[in-house]
Design a protein around this nucleic acid. Structure first.
Length: 327
DNA sequence: CTTCCATCCTCACTTACCTCA
DNA sequence: GGTGAGGTAAGTGAGGATGGA
């Protein structure tokens, strides 16, 4: 399921967010606009079973994981950057159980671990930039983590609930910021480093993703509520303006023949081919209605007949509108 | 090449435990 | 000390992807 919504014009003050969702069945692209001036313009898209990402994650995806991601784009869906984005995670997709060697970002993981007193001396060696864990390392990690979790196993069997320590949670959090999903090797390495069972690391990431999604949903909800409120207000204002115009027309029958604003719009690309006269008697307190159309250049004024009936040929071909715009 | 099946992974939903006011 | 609410670790089942037979 996908829902797309777009309002407003493409003024220069608009800020643009590109979004793209992709799964095995289809690919979606879109653009979200926000307008700093009136705060009304927005675009949103909702996709089923998609995680929230951002532009950065898309770039990471394209740059870093082209090779390892081939054929494994499941559950690594790229999703749209919503206008309101929680500053929670850069969702760099991580390939799932590929045969490729594990790439562990060198960063300052080890140093932070040492600070936390969590680093064990068996961590695979490698360059500062990238460490490659061999299959032996993974197996060793599995053994170590299973050994280390013997005491956890007891509490596990007794049904007691393990509470992760502050340090463990913080380190998991730190890793989650880098990648919200783990491949098996990363999972094992984390489990080994934190003295946990791999299953515990896996569950922690699952629950963490769920919490992120929940939070994002709350933020989206709040945002949509605000948008709804402003649209309601806009609707109310336009209704009022319409009533005033009708009142004006009934008091001055001659003006009734003049359309307040006559736009001929291509229904396909929604470009305005021509704009006509604007009612000069519009009260100063009510600015002329100007919304939703993408006006590329200064609209040409076409001299409509005085008694031209209001007729908007919405079902003509796009070429018709473009021709009449240039003529 | 297609189909079937086992396996793995993630997600959504839920339960159960823990902590705190 | 008892209690309810909220947070969170963990269980469960469904669905999708993948690889091998």
């Amino acid at each position: 399921m996908e829902l797309g919504l777009s309002l407003g014009d493409s003024s220069k003050d608009s800020k643009e967010f590109k979004f793209s969702t992709k799964n095995s069945n289809s690919e979606h692209h879109g653009t979200a606009m926000t307008n700093k001036q009136d705060g009304l313009v927005f675009c949103m898209a909702l996709g089923l079973n998609s995680t929230f990402g951002n532009q950065e994650s898309l770039e990471n995806y394209n740059q870093d994981d082209d090779q390892t991601l081939q054929g494994s784009d499941d559950h690594q869906e790229k999703s749209m950057g919503t206008p309101v984005q929680l500053d929670l995670l850069p969702l760099a997709p991580v390939p799932r159980h590929t045969g490729s060697p594990l790439r562990v970002s060198g960063r300052s993981e080890n140093s932070s671990l040492r600070q936390l007193g969590l680093l064990q001396p068996v961590v695979a060696s490698g360059s500062a930039e990238e460490e490659v864990l061999s299959a032996n390392d993974v197996m060793e990690a599995e053994r170590t983590s299973s050994r280390a979790s013997d005491e956890d196993e007891n509490s596990h069997k007794s049904g007691k609930k393990l509470r992760l320590s502050k340090e463990q949670s913080a380190y998991l959090e730190e890793n989650f910021k880098e990648h919200s999903t783990l491949n098996p090797k990363q999972k094992l390495a984390l489990a080994k480093q934190l003295n946990l069972r791999p299953r515990q690391v896996e569950v922690w990431f699952q629950n963490r993703r769920a919490r992120t999604k929940l939070k994002q949903t709350e933020v989206d909800c709040e945002y949509l509520k605000r948008i709804c409120d402003s649209l309601t207000e806009e609707n109310r204002r336009l209704h009022k303006e319409l009533q005033e115009l009708r009142a004006l027309n009934s008091s001055n029958p001659f003006c009734m023949q003049l359309p307040a604003t006559t736009l001929t719009m291509c229904p396909s690309c929604e470009r305005v081919a021509a704009a006509a006269t604007t009612l000069t008697t519009t009260p100063a307190t009510n600015p002329p209605i100007s919304k939703t159309s993408t006006i590329e250049s200064t609209p040409k004024v076409i001299p409509f007949p005085l008694f031209r009936p209001r007729f908007y040929p919405f079902f003509r071909s796009p070429s018709h509108y473009h021709q009449s715009a240039s003529s």
